[in-house]
Amino acid sequence: MDNKRRKILKFAAVSAALGFTGLPIEGLASYFPKIGKYVRSDKEKKAKQWAMVIDTRKFKTKEDFKRVIEACNSIHNVPEDIPNKKQEIKWIWEDEFEHVFPDQENPFLAERYKDQEVLSLCNHCQHPPCVRVCPTQATFKRSDGIVMMDFHRCIGCRYCMAACPYGSRSFNFRDPAPYVKHKNPDFPTRMRGVVEKCLFCYERLADGKMPACVEASNGAMIFGDLMDPNSEVRKVLRENYTIVRKPELGTEPCVFYII
């Protein structure tokens, strides 16, 4: 009798102890961040400073631009046709030569350039003013030179937009979701109130793929490591006369244009 009672008490005590300690620990544990390590894929493309050369001579028809722009918009959840033109979101787009290169102003510019449309996107500057001014490091420069965005840290102060001399940054003035035509669940979506821009397809580089626009450009855009003398971009830069946007500002853009 006594023995049985002792056993029951023991059982009760042990289960109570488990109840008090074991279970809550498991519950608490779920609040701690999972400490895992990001494993880089073997396929990942690596560089010290990614750079791009755009051969404007090879963009002849509207179709050439559209193919490239669509390739980007369709995989990055970029909203299209936002009713208020002033509040559009743009990652890569076409504009007149005179607008992309306002410092090349010349009233007697050859007609070929006057009518020339040029691609415009984030320059992934070597000295990016947007990164300098961001108060939360929501935009930062990666070791491979990509000017990155953390959409979940951005407070939406838009200081980076004031700092960018290329108009490459867009702010989500409204919820972009209803305007995203091709939803890609593998790429982060954005909410209203944060800034976004071209990220040089960091997600594709991690998979060993070239940026979507480069792939869709049929050789009109060349991508590679600016710091590697044997890379394809360096070869193209050696052989062609190229210009960058607003070199006088000291930002050192990494998007080059063959005119």
């Binding site: 208020n84 509040q87 939406g156 989500n172 409204r174 209203r192």
Partner: peptide, 10 residues
């Protein structure tokens, strides 16, 4: 609704 209610833009 976000800052779309303002006159600001890109």
């Amino acid at each position: 609704h976000g800052l779309m209610v303002t006159g600001m833009g890109r």
